[in-house]
């Protein structure tokens, strides 16, 4: 595709970009800079900010809880990316293959995505509540003891399932679009060659969908690190015993519950760097495997 010069007039281009630039500068770049600066201060309500240099970072390095929290976040985000994409891919494939009622299935798959995270969190909380949950009754009838208010690994799993459930719909939208874009001739050829369904999915569709999948890996990673706050806040408050205390929740608590703004800023800078590095790695890896066509 040739490069198109849509706007020849620089002023016009600038004017059109201005609203976006303004919003970005006011709500993203300036606050980001402020956060970096604030991370070098001891700051709270009703106190003068005191410059402390790298002390906040030193506090983080000396805190085993923080490292646990970081490890939990990475594990959580990784599980979300893998979980969401496998489930979504499977659901998308089923919807793709079915002959009748496709729209109905598609809508039901996408439905949870339409819920605001806070509502989804509450709905899920009451579905799987250890004492009054509807789902719990059936799970316990199967002989498993549901006790995720006290049991760390169970809580991690419950929040994870909730977060995956919420995000699958979003992935299905994009995957359906990408799968529908695979030329029908390829499907036909594969069928004629006697390629099994599973093989057709993983050997034909997935490579053809790779640009969309890379996009989704990135979006899901961001979701895993930042978008799951509501579930943690509503369902576990980071507990029990820190088992679901992901970085974004931890930093929110430091800022808005403990009012330790300097330390919270340091935490957000660290989180920013961690996610930044992860994305860089993802792009480098995907460069090798992604097929962008043409």
């Amino acid at each position: 595709m040739a490069t198109r010069e849509v706007f020849t007039d620089r002023l016009q281009a600038g004017a059109l970009l201005l609203p976006t630039m303004l919003v970005s500068v006011v709500f993203l770049y300036y606050p980001t800079l402020r956060a970096v600066v604030l991370s070098l201060y001891s700051a709270s309500f009703a106190r003068e900010d005191v410059f402390v240099g790298p002390e906040n970072y030193a506090r983080l390095l000396a805190s085993p809880e923080y490292f646990t929290s970081a490890a939990i976040s990475v594990a959580f985000a990784a599980a979300i990316v893998v979980g969401v994409m496998l489930v979504a891919l499977y659901v998308t494939f089923l919807v793709h293959e079915i002959d009748y009622g496709r729209s109905v299935y598609l809508i039901s798959a996408v439905w949870p995505y339409a819920l605001p995270p806070a509502v989804a969190g509450l709905v899920f909380l009451f579905l799987v509540h250890p004492t009054i949950g509807i789902v719990t009754t059936y799970v316990e009838a199967a002989g498993l003891e549901v006790n995720w208010f006290s049991d760390g690994p169970q809580a991690f799993l419950v929040v994870l399932v909730a977060a995956i459930w919420k995000q699958v719909g979003y992935n299905v939208i994009f995957m359906t679009a990408a799968m529908n874009n695979v030329p029908a001739s390829l499907t036909e050829t594969a069928k004629l060659d006697g390629v099994s369904r599973t093989k057709r999915l993983f050997r034909v569709y997935v490579p053809m969908m790779s640009p969309t999948l890379v996009f989704l890996v990135v979006i899901n990673t961001i979701y895993g690190f930042f978008g799951t706050f509501a579930f943690v806040d509503l369902m576990t408050k980071g507990g029990p015993a820190g088992a679901t205390n992901v970085l974004i929740y931890d930093l929110w608590r430091t800022a808005f519950q403990f009012y330790d703004f300097g330390l919270a800023s340091a935490k957000s800078v660290v989180l920013f760097v961690v996610v930044g590095i992860l994305m860089y790695v993802q792009f480098r890896i995907s460069d090798r495997y992604t097929f962008y066509g043409g």
Binding site: Y29, L33, D49, F225, F272, M279
Partner: peptide
């Protein structure tokens, strides 16, 4: 539906922007 370069640029910038959100939320309190 666009070429490889623009898609990846969009990805990068939007990714960075969203990642920055966590950071942005903290500033401007005191």
């Amino acid at each position: 539906p666009s070429g490889p370069v623009s898609r990846r640029t969009v990805l990068r910038t939007s990714g960075a922007a969203v990642a920055g959100l966590g950071l942005a939320g903290c500033a401007g309190l005191t």
